[in-house]
């Protein structure tokens, strides 16, 4: 009995020592399953896994012909506003206007409407050039909002949050012939250009991408 009780006491003392000393001597860690939090976010209801785009958002994949039709209609509306502006300006310069404040309010209102239409037409033209694919510039604000929501739910200034991600391994990309180190043996711009072309894959070459990621605390940007 005595022999068995020694390891139990030993383990108990170690446990007691650790449980007392951790909060005093070590940083407090929390953990989060980022993938689960992302999947739980309301915006993910709009996420189309097949296309990788968010429906009903500026990141949605669009039909090119629909965009062309929409732009034709918006251009017509824009022209009508411009004609109205000319008519209003002509009227104000030919005869006294009763209420100048009202005149300028209408000017500002039409100017704002025009700005919205011009932005929409410009965005649609860009989308047409991209075959209806909005690109990452439209993805960032969505991701930013999602991250902010997730951050708020996780935020605790006393804790460093450890992330459990991902649950699957990413296949290492085939980088044969694209390694920039070849440049040291054969200094050729082609090697560097080839390396840069594959920078997307190279960016995934963090050796611990399949391990827990330690986020730095806010303000410690290195």
């Amino acid at each position: 009995m005595k022999i068995k009780s020694v390891p139990f006491k030993f383990v108990f003392i170690i446990f007691y020592y650790l449980s007392c000393s951790i909060p005093i001597s070590a940083q407090i860690f929390g953990e989060a399953d980022l993938e689960r939090l992302i999947m739980k976010h309301p915006m993910m209801k709009n996420y189309d896994k097949k296309t990788g785009h968010f429906k009903n958002t500026p990141h949605e994949l669009r039909n090119v012909q629909d965009l062309k039709n929409e732009n034709a209609s918006l251009t017509l509306e824009l022209n009508n506003i411009e004609l109205e502006e000319i008519k209003r300006a002509k009227g104000s310069l030919e005869a006294d206007i009763q209420n100048e404040d009202s005149f300028w309010n209408d000017v500002v209102s039409d100017s704002n409407r025009k700005q919205l239409l011009e932005n929409k037409i410009r965005d649609n033209k860009e989308l047409i050039e991209r075959n209806g694919n909005p690109g990452f510039s439209k993805l960032y604000p969505i991701i930013d909002d999602m991250c902010n929501d997730i951050f708020v739910s996780l935020y605790d200034e006393k804790k460093v949050i450890l992330n459990k991600l991902p649950r699957y391994l990413l296949n290492k990309p085939d980088l044969e012939g694209k390694d920039f180190r070849q440049f040291w043996n054969k200094p050729s711009s082609v090697i560097l250009e080839n390396y840069l072309k594959h920078s997307y894959y190279i960016s995934q070459m963090f050796p611990s991408v399949d391990k827990t990621i330690l986020f730095q605390k806010v303000g410690e940007y290195k």
Partner: peptide, 9 residues
């Protein structure tokens, strides 16, 4: 998309 989430965070 997943990498972008990490990066933005």
């Amino acid at each position: 998309l997943l990498i972008t989430v990490f990066y933005v965070i």
